[in-house]
Design a protein around this nucleic acid. Structure first.
Length: 187
DNA sequence: CCAACGATGGTCT
DNA sequence: GACCATCGTTGGC
């Protein structure tokens, strides 16, 4: 098991959002299977942070594919995104949920719960479980400490509208593993 | 079960 | 000063 090749991130953002399902997110001894993602499509997508052009906050989204974009939401939680598309267009994939695989006891400690289904089943939960913060903003997935590992899993993919948006909510850009109990909102 | 709501702070107007 | 790509708790049934 090793980090996925760089060319994997060069596919179109919607394809990448689907392809990431079933892959591993790895940080030290922590590992989880990506089971839920959302695509954000640059300046033409009203739900995307990049829709109003380059700002201090969204600058990492305009960087090269495979970089990391982390931002603070509601003053308390971080969201973890993988930058996608060509440099300068502001696209990214939000990682919304993971199925915990390794390092579960540490995740339980950080999340203050024993319940496995509640460790990484939401964008704010998984960053808490993995201790992903603003210090990871604008790093790349090739230089550590965070990596995407390849897998041979071929999950069945379901689609829906994105969650929590006020603009662009009609677009079907959320992708998740069908029937997986670690997807957000599954309780 | 589920709907409503408050916490909390950076970013942008 | 308003707006969030959220979550845990509360209080109703």
């Amino acid at each position: 098991m090793k980090p996925i090749k760089k060319s994997f991130f060069n596919q179109p953002t919607i394809d990448l959002a689907k392809s990431l399902l079933g892959k591993y997110l790895v940080y030290g001894k922590l590992k989880g299977i990506i089971v839920e993602t959302e695509a954000y499509l640059g300046t033409d997508d009203p739900g995307c942070h990049a829709s109003r052009g380059l700002t201090v906050r969204n600058a990492p989204m305009f960087g090269p594919a495979g970089n990391i974009y982390v931002y603070l939401i509601y003053g308390m939680y971080y969201c973890f995104n993988i930058v996608s598309g060509k440099t300068g267009i502001g696209e990214a994939v939000l990682i919304r949920a993971l199925e915990p695989v390794e390092g579960i006891s540490l995740m339980q400690k950080r999340r203050k719960t024993q319940k496995i289904e509640n460790l990484c089943s939401g964008p704010g939960k998984l960053t808490q479980a993995f201790n992903i913060t603003k210090k990871h903003n604008n790093l790349s997935l090739f230089d550590g400490p965070l990596y995407i590992y390849d897998s041979k899993l071929k999950p069945e993919i379901s689609t829906s509208t994105r969650i929590g948006l006020s603009a662009g909510k009609e677009l079907e850009l959320r992708f998740f593993v069908k029937g997986n109990k670690f997807v957000s909102g599954s309780k």
